[in-house]
Structure formats: C-alpha cells, structure tokens
Nucleic acid binder design. Structure first.
Length: 313
DNA sequence: AACATTTGACCTGC
DNA sequence: GCAGGTCAAATGTT
C-alpha cells in the first residue's frame, strides 16, 4: 500500500511538472491571440495537482490506505442515515423528513469542456442555480433526466464565461448509465469539428461515458424535438435525448432567458472545438476562463502526455 | 396530470 | 462563518 502511495505521488509530481511546462508554452501562445485565459486554465491544473500532493503528504501515517476511494455520497440510501446525522444542528421539520445528507461536490471523475452551447445530446434536468463568488453569472446544476427511472448519476454544472465569447464552462460529473445515453460511442467514429482552428481528427473511445455528440445542428434538433422518444439506437434518437421531449425549453434558450441579452446557440452556430479535460479537481472559479483549440473528445483514461501533446501539436 | 424550472432553505467542507 | 452544492415546495408549461 505504501508502494502505491509512492507511485501515486510520483505520478502527481510528474503531472505537476508537465503542467508547468505547458504553462510556459501556452502562455506565450495565449498572448498572441490576446487571451490570458489559458493561464487560468493551467493554474487550475497546477492547483489540482498541488492539492492532491498536499493531501498525500498530509496523510503519511497509513490513513491514506484507509481513506475512501471515492468521496461520492450514496444518495440512494440517504434515507438510511443514522439519526445522529439526520438530526444534526436543527430539529427535524414537523411535517416532513429531513433532507438527505449530501456531500459537497466531489472532485474526481469530472470532465471539463468549454462550449458555445450547453447542449450535449443528453437530457438534463436542472435542479439548482447558484451565484458564485467573484462571478457575474450564476452556476447552474443539472442532473440526468433519467436519474429517477434509471438511476443515472451523470451530472453537470454550467457556468457562462465572463468574457465576451458567449461560451460556457461545463463540468461533467459521473457517467451516464441510462439507456438513452449517447449512441455515437461505438469505436471508429471520427468527429470533424470544422470550427476553424482545429485540424486534427480523433477517433473516439467506445466508452459509454464518452460524450460524443456535441454541437447538435439546430436543424436536426428541430427535427427531433417533435419526435416521440423511442429506444431505437439512431442518430436522431440520440439527439432527441437532448431535449427528451421537452421541446419548449432547450438549454440554450433557457440560458437566454436567464441572460436576456445573450444570443447563444440560436443562430446555427457552427460548433467550435471544445476543451475537454478529465478533471481531478473541478475548478471553483471560472472568472476568466478561456478555451484551447482542441477538437478531440476522449473521456476515459487518456494520459496526460497524450493530452498535452495534442494541445501543443 | 405530469413534467419541467425556480428559488429559498438546508447541509457540508473549508 | 462562508461558499458551494443540493433539496424540495412552489410555480410554470404542455
């Protein structure tokens, strides 16, 4: 176990070094196009590594081995909480059960993208919105629409970037386990984002969690919005899950309602490349995020070397 | 009626 | 105590 700890520590140190090198390279590039947000992004990476290393260093007495592998809460069993938990701080409400216990946002198993639209081909249900410190735009919280019926644990947070790019910082947590999840995920599919800067093609993994159907064309969307939901495995059905039959409120439009002066995603916007990271520690602030020119999506298990090579190529 | 979003309160970690 | 994440009642939409 101590050996594993050492290896993990070495891995994180290596990652930290890589991020520092990336910082030096990207910052120069960022200045060329007038953006400094790349620096922020790299700072997040460095921060993640630093925190991870700090945690490792702080638990050198064997507690690391016994620490939970995942900070996930078992929400499904929240009703089984001990009375000590349920009655903490305040007396139980008279007419209803106390809310289930929940943990603060877990930081593992998260992926971050930056996009002009918050649509990604899945059906999401908004369950909260919160103003974030030092951020002019609220952060919106979504979970998979199919959570109640299929127990899908996928969640995402969406926050509008505060620059003038009308882009959104989207952080995904967990993976879709619902039957209507993405159906592009068979291996061999190659996405070609013609958003301008991107030039490379990348085969997608066949991971069911890989979100591969970004940038649904508005025309397609309109077509499928009128469809009834089915379980057929097809592109159209896959797209239809983005709105899941609720054609009245696409996420993009919803956002326009929140920021009435925004005009995102409603004018046939050609999909730009996304930033896509497996994130070890989701960022807490998106005050000035930008985006990298990156056109691949790879959700599971890519190495940091691969990621950085792609960015720098 | 059934589903969605909104929003204030609640809860937890730092 | 604060900030972020979640809950759930109220409300809106179809």
């Amino acid at each position: 176990m101590e050996k594993n700890k050492k290896r993990l520590n070495e891995t994180l140190i290596k990652g930290e070094d890589s991020a520092k090198k990336l910082q030096a390279l990207l910052c120069r590039r960022a200045y060329n196009d007038g953006s400094v947000s790349v620096e922020d992004l790299v700072m997040e990476i460095l921060g993640s590594f630093s925190r991870g290393l700090s945690m490792l260093r702080s638990c050198d007495s064997g507690e690391f081995a016994g620490a939970p592998a995942s900070p996930y809460m078992t929400l499904a069993t929240s009703g089984d909480q001990t009375p000590e938990v349920k009655n903490r701080k305040k007396p139980a409400p008279a007419l209803k059960e106390r809310r289930g216990c929940y943990k603060r946002r877990r930081t593992i198993d998260s992926r971050v993208i930056t996009s002009v639209t918050i649509e990604d081909g899945y059906a999401w249900r908004k369950y909260g919105q919160k103003m974030i410190l030092n951020s002019q735009s609220p952060r919106c919280y979504y979970r998979c629409t199919h959570k109640p019926d299929h127990g899908c644990k996928a969640q995402k947070q969406v926050q509008k970037l505060e620059d003038e790019s009308n882009m959104y910082h989207i952080t995904y947590f967990g993976h879709h386990t619902c039957p209507t999840q993405n159906n592009f995920s068979h291996s061999g599919v190659v996405l070609d984002f013609n958003g301008g800067a991107s030039k490379n093609h990348h085969s997608l993994s066949n991971s069911p969690s890989a979100i591969t159907n970004f940038q649904v064309q508005p025309s397609i969307k309109q077509e499928v919005e009128s469809k009834t939901q089915s379980t057929d495995v097809s592109v159209s059905d896959n797209v239809s899950s983005a709105n899941d039959g609720y054609s009245h409120s696409s996420p993009a439009l919803e956002w326009n309602e929140i920021w009435q002066h925004d005009h995102l995603g409603s004018s046939g916007h050609e999909g730009p490349p996304f930033v896509w990271f497996d994130n070890e520690d989701s960022c807490a602030s998106t005050s000035s995020h930008g985006y990298l020119d990156m056109d691949f999506l790879n959700n599971d298990g890519f190495s940091s070397d691969f990621l950085f090579d792609e960015v720098l190529s």
